[in-house]
Design a protein around this nucleic acid. Structure first.
Length: 223
DNA sequence: CGGCTGATCGTG
DNA sequence: ACGATCAGCCGA
């Protein structure tokens, strides 16, 4: 697949789609397509892994206890808005708000598989990677589909490949022509759930099964 | 593989 | 001071 031909990227899902609460949205974002455009360069990926952060009552959430600061402010916006923050001083992580205004439930996008724009993704990964040992291929074809999936596994890596930074915080994904979510081609059938990653500090909320993973291999083998 | 650790900086 | 991470290294 070449990246010279502009891919069909669909159109933004309507705002109503996002107003269903964190757990519902975390599930329904699986299989949807995240699209981002910088000038004439379009990148898109199919979302395969998410986590729900359930707002003021969730000890793992940035908004736990109603915490409302400059950083968390976008979490309180109505569904369909991007909440992008910097973690460990190094990586961007992207969430999507999911509830009514004032209710800071949000969904972290943890992984995807590239759909289009691998050329641009490879450029970005080369440019931003801190890894010394990683060998980057000359062209996107130098990585297999499985290797490409690995490059978009993890919230920081997905944002790096898609070019998402804190400058993208607060964008309205239901109306932004250059940053939006679109319907995918497949409907996930096999969805695994489990505890969220990296929140050992969250006490009684630590083990809640609010992580969702689309097992695409399982869906393929069952036809 | 599983576990540990350093990098790096905005936020509170 | 610490973190919704990542990559490299170490030992098994």
């Amino acid at each position: 697949m070449t990246d010279r031909i502009p891919p069909r990227t669909g159109s933004p899902l309507p705002r109503d789609f996002f107003l269903c609460g964190g757990l519902n949205l975390a599930r329904s974002l699986l299989g949807k397509v995240l699209v981002r455009r910088e000038g004439d360069r379009i990148s898109s990926c199919v979302i395969t892994e998410t986590e729900a952060y359930m707002g003021v009552t969730d000890r793992a959430s940035h908004a736990w206890g109603g915490r409302r600061t400059a950083r968390t402010e976008t979490m309180y916006r109505a569904g369909g808005v991007s909440y992008v923050y910097l973690i460990y001083g190094l990586y961007a992580c992207m969430n999507v708000t999911s509830a009514q205004e004032g209710n800071p439930e949000a969904v972290l996008i943890r992984a995807g598989v590239p759909l289009s724009g691998r050329d641009v993704m490879l450029e970005r990964l080369k440019r931003t990677s801190r890894a010394k040992k990683t060998v980057f291929p000359e062209s996107p074809e130098g990585w297999s589909g499985e290797e490409w999936a690995g490059r978009l596994r993890g919230p920081g890596r997905l944002c790096a490949a898609m070019g998402i930074t804190r400058a993208d915080n607060g964008r309205e994904l239901f109306s932004d022509p250059d940053f939006y979510l679109a319907e995918g081609c497949e409907v996930p059938k096999t969805v695994l759930t489990g505890p969220r990653i990296g929140i050992d500090y969250a006490g009684e909320d630590r083990d809640r099964p609010w992580r969702f993973v689309w097992d695409r291999e399982a869906d393929l083998s069952r036809e």
